[in-house]
Structure formats: structure tokens, C-alpha cells
Design a protein around this nucleic acid. Structure first.
Lengths: 342, 342
DNA sequence: GGGCGTTTTCGAAGCGTTTCGAAACACCCT
DNA sequence: AGGGTGTTTCGAAACGCTTCGAAAACGCCC
């Protein structure tokens, strides 16, 4: 591989002239610049990454910490890792993938050796060891997801409580009076991320605020059948369902309702909220309030890059505003409005 | 962050002594070595990655090229990316993730700038632009998957033809005489990876060699229902099914058979082969010949690391020997053996 | 044609390691 | 005492780039 010295020699100029011609950080006479560029292109010159890193004291690399527990939803997390990589690339950074145990150790390693300029933390647990670690690190870090203690951290996540409120409002405004929430499996809710809990909280609060009947259930396996059975038992007049659960469960909702002779949206209006999957190829496509990996990762990388390049890294929690996408799974019931929006 | 010069100063020795004490590449008097190590630990010294790369002319980074087409199976590919990362880490390397367009461009970039010491190419298409690219790169590269033209390449993949043969043999040896293959969707088979075709070829060849009746079908959507219907129509006496398809389809096989009053393994013995998913939580667990991401990635990284560290990079295609895992989904039919193994 | 302000280019000092050759030292043998 | 043999440590040269300060070149005016 050609070095900058070879380009300089071939172009008959000094090394620094080549450097400035290529970086544009100082003005170079157009004629020489063009000539240098041409020579560089001809020699297929590409600046050596390590040398550049060493001299610039910056690696242009962002580490992505992605533990992958047993109950990690592969598809969802693959999406986040890739969206982060895409966003980073667009900002001129490459991404280093840290998985499993190394998701934690790798953070120290890449920060201590200056291998990475910043870190994006994915799949954040309520009580995540990486939270404490990041406080000791002095390497810009952004969490995608909310740990219990966000003190001193920069975190980004969908506003799950707001998402739940929006879903409830939609259904109530469309005349529904008995809402069911199919949440995540109970074991997932107990340990792991806290967004199911945040969603649950928002759902209950808003259902009570609007004065409608509601019931909550957690699926047991990977199907919605049991959940549907339980919801209908608790709330026979059920007319609306909010899904904040996994793909498997969501996909099986329609057949599960069918066993009770019910269908979406004629009998039961349905909204999936805070989910990463697309319902496009479900038997019945659903209205969705997406957990938008693209938006989250882009915002996270943006924040991180700003921190790296300007040094501004204010602790903050950014809650992304939920976005509602209609697909026809909510049907208006003709009823008088119950309570105006609070 | 402390530098090696600071450690040297604090320990009262020269820089090179610190370097050798830490790397162990030359003998250092035990007493000084211990002292240096203690001082280094106390200062929290970690060698600067860029400086090390520059001096050692090696980055200890492997690039992982993972395009992610529309029809990419997220779960499967996430697994491959992560297994590669794990294997690389175990060998002392970090991994750079290159996705989407950058899966191609990133290869040139990371090779040209010496950012990466080697490249692992995932999700290989029959006619993959990265094949031609890698030939121009002079950076050790290993493909996981087989492109059409493997000339001059190092490739690793499961021996799908052998896997198909083994599945057929199992069923025939257990007394089955009418085998159905549920392959991948037709559009997946046409463009994209060639392993479905290799599997198909092996299946047909072996079914003919053993002299049993057989039929092949490609699912249309994400369920096995249509495939089962078609197989039973073509082959009413169907008594064995081989699955070389996606999770969705495989998971729905049991219910699909149930609509015909058939069950696994009483009526239909079943084997899933060349698949990445686990059938553990299917209604009926299946015998599996796994496409073992762990094994493939480990072998690939091994080969790559050897190439990087010793310079040996013989073009070769490594076909991994299939492994059969019983789960009780094949039931022996008492019949006289038909044809001995060829 | 000497002086002055600009533009353009150059030289050299880092950045923090690794690694080679040689110096320094201790020890034993003749 | 001189010389050879190890062992241990040191100094300095890379590695290839960025960037600062200053020199060189240029243009212009008096």
C-alpha cells in the first residue's frame, strides 16, 4: 500500500502538502491540489488507519455493546446493532461489535486502549452492570434503553408510557370500553428490560384516567391463545386489545381470537405498541406504534458523535415521541364520547 | 490514560524494558518484570491501540461483511455475526461490523487502510460481488457459504449434499419408502445462496440411489400447509418428510399435518436438515442435522487467523461434516431393507 | 528594486508503540 | 588481567500520519 511519503515524492511536493490537499484543512493552490489528488488516486493511496488514529488521537470507531442473553430477541437486537452501524457509518465511524461477556469487558478494553471513541450500549437491563462501568470510563457512552438508575448517563428510548397512553386513547376515542393488554411474558418482565413495566404503567394509568374497563395478561408460551382466553374470562365484553409483546404471540392473536368466533377489527380492535416487528405479513395487519430502531439508533449515534467531536456530553434522558401508524385494525364503535382527553 | 513512557519513568526503567516485560517477547529479570507489572497495574496502564497497531503493523481487527438483504433471515445471520465475533475474540481479535452497502465498500476501505487484518464474508450469494472484490484485495478473506465460482477463495460451509444424503438414508434405513422434501421458498432458491440447491441435489440423488419414491415442494408463504397439501397429493403414501426450510414453515409443519389427521412421528417421520434454528420448542421436537453457526464461524476464524499470522492462505473449500441429532421424530417402520447403502 | 502583506509550501515535532542492535554488567576460564 | 559467554537493560529507529510554526514565493506599490 502506498504511503503519503510516496505520494508526496511522486507528486513532487512535501508530505504536509499532500496531507493538507487531502484533508482540505488548509488552503492549497488549486493546481497543486488537483495534481496531488490525481497522483494519490493513481497510486491508489489510502491513508493508513492506525497512523491516522495515532496522529489524530481519534479512531473513528464506535463500540457497540450487545450482550445477548438467553431470552434476547435476536431479530430485534440484530436490527439495533445494524441500525447503529449504519448511522455510525453515515457519520464517518466504523463499529466494533462486543458481544456476550465481552459486551462488558470489551467496553473497558476498547475505552482504555482508545480503540473506540465512544460506546453505544444496547439491550439495557434494568440493573445493568454496564451502567456502573460506564461511570468509571471517561469515554462518551449512550444507552439505548433505560436502566433503573440513569444518574449521570445519556439514555435514549421510546416513551413507552406515552405509547401506552396513545394506544388507550385511540381505542377509547373510537368508542371502545373494555380494553385488554397482552404484555410480555412474566419472566421477561421480572428480570431484564424495564420497558414492559413502563408500558404497563402507562396503560393502567390511562385506562383509569379514561374510566374504561381493562385487564392485563402475560402470555405463557409463544402463542396468544392462553392470553386471549384469560382476557375474555376477566372481561367478557372485551372490545379492544393492545399488544406489547413478542412477534410469535402477536402473530397468533388473530387465530386465537378466531377460536372464540371473534375477528379483528370487526369484534376486537387491536393495536400493537412498542414493538419492533412489522405486522405487514400477519393474517391481519395491525395499527402499530413502532419501537423504531432506526430512529433510536440514529439519535443515539448523533448524540455520541457530538460528544466525541465537541466534548459536550450532558447527562440526559431522551424519550422519543411515539408515532402512530394506521393499518385498519381499529374500527370505530358508535358511542357517545365518555371522557374528554385529560 | 497512562503511557508506556510514564510506566517506564515510574518504574525507573527504560521504555523497551516495560514493553518486553509486558509482552514477554524477551526475557527480563523476574524481579524487574514483577516490579514493572506492578507499576503498570497501579497506573492502570493499557497500551494505546493505535500506537500498537502502527508499530506492529497489525490491527488485531477482523472485518465481518454482512449485507442484509430484504430476504435475509435475521436470526440466522445475527447468530453468524455473533459467533464470528466470539471466535475472533477468543483468538485475540475484535470485529468490525460492515452492513448493507458498506458490506462491500467497507471491505475495500478496511483492507486499503489496513484497518482490518482479515475479512469474514457472511451471507454469501451464488453470484456475490464480494467474490470478485476479494480477489483484488490482498487481505486474507474467508467466505462462510459457497459462491458459484470459488476459484482462489477460501470457503467454509456445511456439506449440504451430504446432509441431504444422511437424512434420506436415515429415513430409508428406518423403513420409509415415500419421502417428501420441503425446501426453501422458490424466490429464495432462485436468487441468493445456493445451499438450498445443493441440498435439493443431494436429496434427489440419494432418493434415487436408494430407489424410494420422493417429491419436492417449495413453500409459498410462511407456513407449511400448502407444502403438505401438495406433497400428499403427489405422494399419498408419504411417510417421511425432510425439512430444509425456514423456522416459520418448520414450526407450522405439525399443525399442517394435523389437518390431514397425520402426526409426527407416528404417521410421518420428520428430519430438519441444514437449518440454524432449534426445534426444541416446537410442538414436536425434530431430529436435526444442524447448520452449526458456531462450528462454521470458529473454523472460519481459525483459518483466517492462521492466514494472518503465518501468511499461509491456500485457496480451499472446506465442507463441514454434518452431524445428526436425534429427538425422536423418526420412527422405524418394520420392513425388509430395500437397498443397502451405496 | 526594496519593502510589505498574502498566499503557498515546507520541515520537523509529535502521537505511543515495537523491535533491533548494542551497551553494560556479572561471571568464569585461562 | 584479558577474553569469552551469557544475561539484562537501554537507546534509537521505525511505523505513517497530522499539524504547527516558519520559510519561501508571489504580487503589488512606491
Amino acid at each position: 500500500m502506498a504511503t503519503i511519503a510516496e505520494v508526496a515524492e511522486a507528486a513532487g511536493v512535501s508530505i504536509s502538502t499532500v496531507s493538507y490537499a487531502l484533508s482540505g484543512k488548509r488552503s492549497i493552490k488549486p493546481a497543486t491540489r488537483d495534481h496531488v489528488l490525481a497522483v494519490a488516486a493513481e497510486l491508489g493511496y489510502a491513508p493508513n488507519a492506525s497512523a491516522r488514529m495515532l496522529a489524530a488521537q481519534r479512531s473513528q470507531i464506535i463500540a457497540v455493546s450487545e450482550p445477548v442473553h438467553a431470552d434476547t430477541d435476536d431479530t430485534a437486537h440484530m436490527t439495533f446493532a445494524m441500525e447503529t452501524t449504519k448511522a455510525a457509518r453515515a457519520a464517518g465511524y466504523d463499529t466494533l461489535l462486543l458481544v456476550h461477556d465481552d459486551a462488558v469487558e470489551g467496553m473497558s478494553r476498547s475505552a482504555a486502549t482508545s480503540l473506540a471513541d465512544g460506546i453505544v450500549v444496547l439491550d439495557v437491563d434494568e440493573d445493568d452492570p454496564r451502567v456502573e462501568l460506564s461511570r468509571t470510563l471517561s469515554c462518551p457512552t449512550v444507552f439505548i434503553g433505560l436502566p433503573a438508575d440513569t444518574d449521570g448517563l445519556v439514555c435514549i428510548d421510546l416513551d413507552f408510557e406515552a405509547a401506552a397512553r396513545i394506544a388507550v386513547d385511540r381505542l377509547v376515542d373510537a368508542g371502545h370500553r373494555a380494553l385488554g393488554l397482552i404484555s410480555h411474558r412474566e419472566d421477561t418482565v421480572l428480570r431484564g428490560s424495564n420497558f414492559p413495566r413502563r408500558f404497563l404503567r402507562g396503560f393502567i394509568a390511562q385506562a383509569e384516567a379514561r374510566g374504561v374497563a381493562y385487564a392485563v395478561t402475560h402470555p405463557h408460551g409463544h402463542t396468544a391463545q392462553g392470553s386471549v382466553d384469560r382476557l375474555l374470562k376477566k372481561l367478557p365484553e372485551l372490545d379492544g386489545i393492545v399488544l406489547n409483546t413478542t412477534t410469535d404471540v402477536a402473530a397468533s392473536l388473530s387465530p386465537a381470537l378466531a377460536t372464540h368466533g371473534l375477528s379483528i377489527p370487526e369484534d376486537i380492535s387491536t393495536i400493537a405498541a412498542g414493538v419492533t416487528f412489522s405486522t405487514g405479513r400477519f393474517a391481519v395487519p395491525l395499527d402499530v406504534i413502532p419501537l423504531d430502531a432506526h430512529a433510536s439508533c440514529e439519535a443515539a449515534v448523533q448524540l455520541l458523535v457530538t460528544a466525541i467531536e465537541t466534548g459536550e456530553h450532558q447527562p440526559q434522558t431522551v424519550l422519543l415521541v411515539p408515532d402512530y401508524r394506521e393499518a385498519g385494525s381499529v374500527l370505530a364503535r358508535s358511542r357517545a364520547p365518555l371522557t374528554p382527553h385529560p
